[in-house]
Design a binder for these strands. Structure first.
Length: 492
RNA sequence: GGCGAAUUCGUCUAUCGGCUAGGACAGAUGCCUCUCACGCAUCAAAGAAGGGUUCGAUUCCCUUAUUCGCUACCA
């Protein structure tokens, strides 16, 4: 909706459709606003955004709906029904495939079967009622969908939908939606496929009000499906499979349940928007990485797919990786700082920046000795801890079955490391250049290839940055300490 | 059950009658390399099934199958 509206210079409206008072959730509205803000999706009108078509909360538009319900009642397009939920349940149990429609409305308690006096008396007595849309059967209703083309549905399969319920003096979605869209001068309705079956009902409502000529265009988008198995993606699937479904972490005030959020998991909003936009739409070429502004230019409803798309959280992580590596070093530091704190490390800001710099060296493109461009695969800043802990914590033991250690620490290695240790102890200038000046000639003289064993000693496993850089960061004392410990531990 | 929609590699998708069916993620292999990665190269991987229409169907039509959605005084 955002892409479409912006592309056409239109306004995006943020309307709260809270016509089901039973389902009111405190905090949900604020949550939604904050989520869109985080994603960078800005509305032009609506709750918290202002505009000339308010109020934008349907629960605050009761006067308006009451008026339009009356219009339909007056022109015979709707009627009042007194059937209680219990009575309806009974009918459904009695009659197979019961539907409240032209065939059955004659046997129900409503203003079509009751006299005007009876109806007035019931209302005066405080009886609860609903207003139902009187659907004329046997008509083929055409829905011209921008994505699916022309869809025809016969009105006979539609039931006499409830438009308004007196119990809470609120309309249902169908009535509120049509009235609001008309009054708010909505030109396009882009919504999920689950609305396609009731689209003809909405067309009929526009006609009943005499608004057919200004009826908005419809576009029904495909649904998001579960990553594994069948069915549409539900709120709970995410945490079951280890990925977020909610944009922001959500604490349900009623159940106390916590659903993880993209923001808290370390996703970048641009990555989420990009990934989501491509689920069900593509620009028609091979381009996958696009900013919101680019997507506004490229978006095309006719290029939206019609079938549901399975949610692939592995690819979502890849998108995040792409956006993460484009970020400046400094943007990683706050998140990295938190990771360190969480792991009980007290590092100086300089140290943090230095580690991030070194890791980013391997993340951002750089050219190695062979002229190859290199990068590092980090999808989330939170991935950094296992890749950086050795900067702050010395190895406490060595897994002799570890493939890297086994391969690189042979029988003679402890002796070679001991030789290297004496060389290192003699180094005055413990910088990358200073070490190179001493160690490079030493390796050539002795023929010893110290890199991997040295890595075992300082890191404890087969990962990390260039050894000179790492050693310079750790400092001479720490390097000596770790080497002594390794030589000792490995010879036992 | 009824109605509607959908159906291309494991996943997201391109193709608007000419296909040796393209790309991306994931996977495999190789190269690179002081490690892990990254990068690069290569490989493997698809038109649900059956009928039509057509010189020619992944593309159009029909049937079947499967999946999804709707069938609430929920949205």
């Amino acid at each position: 909706n955002y892409l479409f509206a912006k592309q056409h210079g239109g306004d995006l409206i943020f309307r709260i459709e809270d016509t089901d008072s039973n389902r009111f959730v405190p905090g949900a509205e604020e949550y939604i606003i904050e989520s869109f803000k985080w994603l960078g999706i800005k509305f032009d009108e609506g709750v918290s955004f202002g505009g000339n078509h308010g109020p934008y909360r349907q629960s605050e538009r009761r006067d308006i709906y009451r008026k339009y319900v009356q219009v339909l009642l007056d022109n015979g397009k709707a009627y009042i029904a007194f059937d209680t939920p219990e009575e309806l349940d009974k009918k459904r149990a009695e009659i197979e495939n019961f539907q409240y429609d032209a065939k059955t409305r004659g046997m129900m308690r409503n203003s079509l079967t009751l006299s005007k006096e009876e109806v007035d008396a019931l209302i005066a007595a405080g009886e609860q009622y609903v207003v139902r849309f009187k659907i004329e059967p046997g008509r083929d209703v055409l829905v011209d969908d921008l994505i699916r083309g022309e869809v025809t549905i016969n009105s006979s399969i539609l039931d006499d939908k409830v438009l308004y319920k007196s119990a809470d003096d609120l309309p249902t979605y169908h009535l509120a939606n049509i009235v609001d869209d008309h009054l708010m001068e909505v030109t396009h309705v882009i919504r999920g496929e689950e609305w396609l079956p009731s689209a003809p009902l909405h067309v009929l409502l526009y006609e009943a009000f005499g608004w057919a000529d200004t009826m908005p265009r419809f576009a029904h988008l495909p649904l998001l499906l579960k990553p594994v198995g069948n069915g549409k993606l539900s709120k709970r699937d995410g945490d079951k499979l280890g990925f977020p479904v909610f944009p922001l972490e959500w604490h349900d005030p009623k159940s106390g349940e916590i659903s993880s959020g993209y923001r808290e998991k370390g996703y970048l909003p641009q990555a989420v928007v990009n990934f989501l936009a491509l689920l069900g739409w593509n620009p028609g070429n091979d381009q996958e990485l696009m900013s919101l502004d680019e997507m506004v230019k490229l978006f095309d409803l006719s290029k939206c797919s019609k079938a549901g798309a399975k949610f692939d959280y592995v690819k979502a992580a890849w998108f995040n990786h792409q956006y993460l590596i484009q970020q400046d070093d400094k943007e990683w530091c706050p998140a990295f700082d938190k990771i360190l704190k969480d792991n009980g490390i007290n590092a100086t800001a300089e140290q943090e920046a230095e580690v991030v710099r070194m890791m980013k060296m391997k993340v951002i493109e750089y050219v190695d000795g062979q002229g190859n461009k290199k990068k590092r695969n980090i999808s989330f800043v939170s991935d950094l801890w296992p890749l950086t802990k050795f900067f702050f914590v010395a190895p406490t033991s060595f897994d002799k079955e570890d493939k890297f250690i086994k391969k690189n620490w042979k029988e003679t290695t402890s002796d070679e490391m001991a030789q290297m240790l004496t060389v290192i102890e003699g180094i005055e200038d413990f910088t990358v250049e200073g070490m190179k000046a001493v160690i490079d000639p030493w390796t050539e003289q002795t023929g010893i290839k110290p890199w991997n064993p040295w890595r075992v000693a300082l890191v404890g496993e087969g990962l990390g940055p260039d050894m000179y850089e790492l050693a310079a960061f750790l400092g001479k004392d720490e390097v000596i300490k770790r080497m002594k410990f390794a030589i000792d531990a490995m010879s036992n």
